[in-house]
Design a protein around this nucleic acid. Structure first.
Length: 473
RNA sequence: GGUGGGGUGGCCGAGCGGUUAGGCACCUGACUGCAGAUCAGGUUUGAGCGAGUUCGACUCUCGCCCCCACCUCCA
């Protein structure tokens, strides 16, 4: 259990930075609004989930036990529409897309949530919650639909402070059957012909949007929990309605800290399926290392907007390569185990300083750009350690520290295939040997021809004090 | 229109009432046959505009301009 609680985070509910102190011991209960998997996951989704992944990793690094629940909204209008078009079973369609998204997220090194509840698995809990809301006078049935009575919950709007007009404009016109207050929203929708349905005390139907998150979080995390997150766009009406449903049903505060991620934009516009300007995560992963995408995401604060572009991605790739090079330099330096000296102590002290500032940055509302700056500071120190060279012990200590913090951001690149295997490796070694001999004989035209030729084939040769190094592009 | 967030050096992007953010790009030097990597240093006397508070503001206050998001489904 952490001895103290150094982390502060900006709570969307209050707009202020608040100390993160778990409601119960050192255990943080976190609910993140997940995907509605009617289609492939795109980079915008990736941004949000990497954001919460880093938050979770930092909480864990600080000694908290995080229970991470992230739902899958597998019963929803868009899924039903899509399934109707293709003739698919809506639940199977959702499950299929979810599996694909899960694979993508895993490749992005996003830690899987501990629980991934589906709406279709929580129908009894949802029905029970709606019944409770009706019993408490916060909901009513009309023509097979059930609505939440916004008027019965005077505290409505704590998160986004919508005015009356907004609440009225915010309602959906197509589900107005049997509705009393224009600002009321659906908890249960009567089934239309051909739609998926479940039996309920109000007839055949399905849950409205919003209610599933209240039912699932209440069942899995309790009436009150620590952190609830999602994209900025979910604040209104989704999260506002969740608060109303949950607090009206339990009479207890719903969530202590609300965290919202900013958007990924393309040329200044939000990346979304409806705008058609999205890049699927799968495509992005086919063209970029996962660490490059993560680095792009963490180089901006989680609440800020990230403008996606090829140029930004290219810049991230350069930084990832810089990290990889530093680790390679350290690896090579380990072979020549130097002496501990004053310089070594100075470098270790610099490393320690960067570590402290990294921690300060992360403690301060998960300031990943600030933390990244310190991580790159460590890269510089590591390179100095590699060229000094210092003792093997110091190198190993430095490397371990660096890896620990790089892992918090999830930007530690995996080793690239150093070269190749079998006969190819033999040919490569032979060419390098011939090139070395040419260099020693000052036959630079020949040695450069070998280097250029190999570069064209994807093998970059870099000469160093202790021989040539091969890197694959 | 309402609500919320923001406008920082060529580009990306933080913190902070006075002390170098960091990266990318570019230039110079060291190292190298050259290149690359790395290190050292430098470039733009940074802060949308105007006014105010202050010994001092990029950081606080007010006004104006502009951008984005939410207000319909949305991560």
């Amino acid at each position: 259990m952490p001895r103290e609680h150094p982390i502060v985070a900006e709570n969307s509910l209050t707009g202020k930075k608040e100390r993160v102190v778990p409601l119960e011991g050192s255990r943080v209960r976190m609910y993140v609004c997940g995907l509605t998997p009617y289609d492939a996951a795109h980079l915008g989704h990736a941004r949000t989930y990497v954001g919460f992944d880093v938050i979770r990793r930092w909480l864990q690094h600080r000694g908290y036990g995080v229970l991470h629940v992230q739902n899958i909204t597998d019963v929803e209008d868009k899924i039903i529409d899509r399934a109707m078009q293709t003739g698919d079973d809506p639940l199977l369609l959702a499950e299929r897309n979810h599996k694909l998204a899960e694979e993508d997220f895993a490749r992005l090194r996003i830690l899987p949530p501990h629980l991934t509840p589906r709406v279709s698995e929580f129908i009894p809990q949802i029905v029970e919650l709606i019944e409770r809301l009706i019993a408490r006078g916060h909901a009513y049935e009309g023509k097979g639909n059930v609505y939440f009575s916004v008027g019965s919950f005077p505290q409505y709007g704590a998160l986004t402070h919508p005015n009356q007009e907004q609440m009225l404009e915010g309602v959906r016109k197509d589900v107005a059957e049997g509705k009393r207050g224009a600002e009321d929203f659906a908890l249960w929708k009567a089934a239309k012909p051909g739609e998926i349905w479940w039996d309920s005390p109000w007839g055949k139907g399905r849950p409205g949007w919003h209610i599933e998150c209240s039912a699932m979080s209440n069942t899995l995390l309790g009436a009150t929990f620590d952190i609830h997150g999602g994209g900025m766009d979910l604040k209104f009406p989704h999260h506002e309605n969740e608060i109303a449903q949950s607090e009206a049903a339990t009479g207890q505060p719903f969530v202590k800290t609300w965290l919202h991620c900013g958007f990924l934009t393309v040329q200044g516009e939000k990346m979304s399926k409806s705008l058609g300007n999205f890049v699927t995560l799968r495509d992005a992963l086919a063209k970029n290392e996962p660490e490059v995408l993560r680095l792009l995401f963490v180089s901006t604060h989680y609440r800020s907007r990230i403008d996606y572009s090829e140029a930004a991605l290219a810049q991230s790739a350069v930084v990832v390569q810089r990290i990889r090079t530093a680790l390679e330099n350290v690896e090579h330096a380990k072979g020549k185990d130097g002496r501990s000296d004053v310089e070594e102590h100075r470098l270790l002290a610099q490393l320690d300083h960067a570590k402290q500032r990294f921690e300060q940055a992360m403690d301060n509302d998960f300031d990943t750009p600030g933390a990244l700056a310190q991580l790159l500071e460590m890269v510089g120190v590591l390179n100095k350690m590699a060229s000094h060279p210092v003792s093997r012990t110091a190198l190993e200590r430095g490397e371990l520290q660096f890896r620990t913090y790089a892992n918090v951001l999830g930007v530690l690149p995996g080793a690239k295939q150093s070269a190749s295997a079998g006969a190819e490796q033999g040919l490569l070694d032979l060419l390098l040997q011939v090139r070395q001999e040419a260099r020693l004989a000052k036959q630079f035209a020949i040695s450069d021809k070998v280097r250029d030729g190999l570069a064209a084939l994807g093998f970059v040769i870099e000469d160093s004090a202790d021989g040539p190094r091969v890197r694959r592009t």
